[in-house]
């Protein structure tokens, strides 16, 4: 079908597609735009698109009034922390499953997947009570553990599908060349798997950053990340749209960038290799 397009068709279809795309993107655009308005202009009707006084005041105030960076810091610590812990577990597990499979490897993989399908509400009550009894409520450590465990199946699966693409021959060649197991992993496997490991980490960071069930239910202030911070704007007294927009923009910007970079690998990670 592509080969038959006329120049006019190409242009008009492009215009149409861009209109559709911009409509889908509009809420994000509008949020960013609103973050540069004064509170008054943010709620004015008709809305002002360009002709308003651009201001950075909201960004300053978000930090001053609500200590934005504390929440942002928590988000970073939770996302990166859970990813690093997960990586240690997932790399070894995926290595074993991809290169030393046993009869039960497939079952183990599917079982891991099935834990991901457990609705969190099914275990909310005991996890909440255990966290309360162990003093883990509202602690970063507790939340890192939860996020790590929540995403571990996805990490193992993603790495497993990447490792599977590395020909076993090459690892055997290394073994014939006299490499010991640690050397085989460090000098041969890991260098070849760098792209896969990187995209696994990125996806995990995205998922942990945006996680909004456990972070809302298990934190109150000390360990609360940006999801909880934004949620605090839902109360009527928190309703300042421009500041909400500024805080939101700050909260989504880094993840949007990471997400755009890793969009291709995302498909594999989210479908457990079922669509390539």
């Amino acid at each position: 079908m592509e080969n038959k397009q006329t120049p006019l068709g190409y242009v008009s279809f492009s215009v149409f597609a861009w209109i559709v795309g911009l409509l889908i993107f509009f809420p994000i655009f509008w949020m960013v735009l609103t973050s540069f308005k004064s509170e008054l202009e943010a709620i004015s009707i008709p809305p002002s698109f360009i002709s308003f006084d651009w201001t950075l005041e909201n960004y300053v105030e978000v930090q001053e009034r609500s200590n934005y960076f504390k929440f942002a810091m928590n988000s970073v610590i939770l996302a990166v922390g859970s990813t690093l812990v997960g990586l240690v577990f997932a790399v070894t597990c995926a290595w074993a499953m991809a290169f030393n499979p046993t009869k039960r490897t497939k079952d183990a993989l599917l079982w891991m997947l099935s834990t991901k399908m457990m609705p969190p509400v099914g275990v909310l009550v005991p996890i909440y009570l255990l966290f309360r009894d162990w003093g883990l409520l509202d602690t970063r450590f507790g939340l890192i553990m939860v996020l790590f465990l929540m995403n571990l199946p996805i990490m193992v699966w993603m790495l497993y599908t990447y490792f599977k693409e590395i020909p076993t021959d090459i690892l055997e060649a290394a073994r014939m060349d006299g490499a010991t197991l640690p050397k085989e992993i460090i000098f041969v496997l890991l260098p070849m798997a760098v792209p896969g490991i990187a995209s696994t980490m990125l996806l995990n960071i995205i998922l942990a950053w945006n996680e909004a069930f456990w972070t809302l239910n298990l934190t109150t202030s000390d360990a609360a990340p940006l999801t909880a911070f934004i949620a605090s704007y839902s109360s009527p007294e928190g309703l300042f749209w421009a500041k909400l927009s500024a805080a939101s923009t700050l909260a989504v910007a880094p993840i949007l960038v990471i997400g755009w970079f890793s969009q291709k690998q995302l498909v594999r990670g989210l479908t457990f290799g079922a669509v390539k």
Binding site: P27, W30, A212, S248, L256, I258
Partner: peptide, 15 residues
């Protein structure tokens, strides 16, 4: 087009 997927749910809801 794919951007909305990366928006955290609480931001999505409030916007």
């Amino acid at each position: 087009v794919i951007a909305p997927f990366f928006i955290m749910p609480t931001v999505n809801a409030l916007v």
